[in-house]
Design a protein around this nucleic acid. Structure first.
Lengths: 364, 364
DNA sequence: CTGAAAGCGCTTACAG
DNA sequence: CTGAAAGCGCTTACAG
């Protein structure tokens, strides 16, 4: 079957009938004044009730609540934002929505935001180019409310830096070398420690050293995962090979895997994420190197498919949705004094040992 | 390593300094009146310029534009929404953000929305329970603007049905049995045809019949994929085995695969998506049935990892981001007469033959 | 082609 | 504890 194109008309049917406003249905929604009239009070009192203001007589409150219920009143968010300047909204800025980690963080943010009845918006950073990033940040700022920026890549790092002072923002970042300085909170999981643990696992199986296929660093500095890996090697007195530069996806892992497979001394490979590991596994298969009998492979993230690969993948599980929830909790605290730092458990990275790692082949 | 919990304080550092508004920076943003003053015109004229109203003298327009630029003016979206009733926003309602198909549709919507400078919101349908779905729809409606509902599952189907009349909405649906009736446009890819092609591919290799592991149907009716599969079997005069009921993820495919693996007559399995196929591949591996030598497997979606599996997965590529873009284009047309039905190419499902499908084993 | 008025649905002081 | 006024930043008629 060839790839072919059809026009929208072929694939989509528009059953929309433009003039179809059903008789009574499109009555404009109830306003605060409608509720006031129905309850026999002034509309300011209605405002007090919906804002939980204490000084309202219980009987009055009841009447207002009943009217709200009956009229199906919903507070107009645009009017609220305009009058109060506050916005109960958060926009997530991210370079990607389909990678497992990014998508899970988004899911976590949405979950927590929903529980706090915040609206959640999303803006995709399609390019890391400065002007494009700045435009996206502006767009996100226009939405009102706070920002959560996923800064795992240059576009995200640029966006975080481009957020104007005074705009509430939380960054989701790689483990930073030093605690966040300046004016904005960050969240992260301890992936330096996680990489350290994964490397130690492989070393403890008897491998002489562990090679590393890196995800692109978010900055020019060494990434946290890389430095955790390096530290474990150093402590063990193992040789420290140069990390192979991968991309985010399996294609990069595949390319790096083909190169590593050529070197018979390579018996253990740690990968910056599970997608890279998938590509490495494939490359080892294509070059006839058995996993784990000849080469051990470990990944990062515990993506949903990793447990079902053949061989199933040893990896480090990261709680991305928990990270997203934590990011929202922090932002919520910045936005509303009352919501400040509700202590919030986040699970720590966890090594999951599966079939892809084992002892090195016996020396010949 | 045990799963352990830490408090937020351990994992996150708050560098936020509450009192830190930099001296001049937090000046309130420029309004239409500031621009008017700077340009020496009335603010209504500024309104005309930013709305592209024709009747403005070019020289006046220039002055206003210059002032806008200099002051960094951005139109306040809340005020715009309140005064005009329009909202340049779209909210995507979905049961999931991490599955490849769902995430790609979201990415496509966002891409098209960004190009049209629409804000994009997201609401996750965590439960298919009626009250929960209704609450989510309300939340989405509160955001203003239009709705795009991914109706691939009961929660989404329920949400689409719960959208009040008069609210602009586009559904992303399975191939419907009949064209959309009533008042709302839908988009879909032709996955009935796609399932038909995939089944014919397997039959053409010589398999006596093709078994099917289904994704959950969005409704009680037979899904489009199931009916495409069935039609191909019928036309070929092949036996029509009962579809195995899977879930969305690899675990469901694994369970179904273990059952199918027990039956030596099974030589070809079509799966409702690539995640199911992954689970089936794993089950066949565990039971010692070789793919494709003994059993052929095909999936649906062409997820990013499918090309790198061992064996690589024969599948049907679906253009989810294109679908998302098309959904937005339709919604845009509903929202703004001027944007109506810009014909928009969407690629058709494409069979991708890889290593997991081949001829059946020779009869013994 | 451009200006003055009223109003979108709320909140935030200010009165009583 | 409750009401009357002013205003958030825009747009939409209505004038000239």
């Amino acid at each position: 079957m060839n790839l072919s194109l059809r026009s929208l008309d072929d694939l989509c049917v528009t059953g929309h009938n433009p003039g179809m406003n059903v008789t009574g249905h499109t009555r404009s929604p109830a306003s605060i004044r409608d509720v006031a009239a129905a309850a026999g009070v002034s509309y300011q009192t209605v405002s007090r009730v919906i804002n939980g203001h204490p000084s309202v007589r219980p009987a009055t409150r009841e009447r207002v609540l009943a009217a709200i219920d009956e009229l199906g009143f919903r507070r107009n968010t645009a009017a609220l934002a305009l009058a109060s300047g506050r916005s109960r909204a958060v926009t997530v800025l991210t370079a990607n929505t389909t990678h497992y980690g990014y998508a899970s963080i988004l899911q976590g943010v949405e979950e927590a935001a929903r529980a706090a009845s915040f609206a959640v918006g999303i803006g995709v950073l399609e390019s890391a180019e400065e002007a494009a990033v700045a435009a996206e940040v502006q767009r996100a700022a226009d939405a009102g409310g706070g920002l959560i920026v996923i800064a795992y890549d240059p576009a995200g790092v640029g966006a975080l830096a481009a957020v104007p002072a005074g705009l509430p923002v939380v960054g989701v970042v790689e483990t930073p070398a030093s605690p966040p300085s300046g004016d904005r909170p960050w969240v992260w999981t301890d992936d330096r420690e996680a990489a350290y643990e994964a490397t130690r696992h492989l070393l403890s199986l008897g491998h002489e050293t562990v090679h590393y296929v890196a995800i692109p660093s978010s900055t020019r500095r060494t990434s946290a995962r890389t430095s955790g890996w390096r530290q474990a090697l150093k402590e063990a007195g193992a040789p420290q090979p140069r990390p192979a530069q991968g991309s985010w996806g399996p294609a990069g892992g595949h390319a790096a895997g083909l190169r590593l497979a050529r070197d018979p001394a390579v018996t253990a490979i740690l990968c910056g994420n599970d997608d890279l590991a998938l590509g490495v596994l494939r490359a080892l298969h294509e070059t006839g190197r058995a996993v784990p009998d000849e080469v051990s492979v470990a990944g990062f993230d515990d993506a949903p498919h990793s447990a079902y690969l053949t061989p199933s993948l040893t990896t480090v599980r990261l709680d991305f949705t928990g990270l997203g929830r934590a990011a929202f909790a922090l932002l919520h605290g910045v936005l509303e004094e009352s919501a400040r730092i509700a202590p919030h458990p986040v699970s720590v990275p966890e090594l999951v040992v599966r079939e892809s790692s084992g002892p090195p082949p016996a020396r010949s």
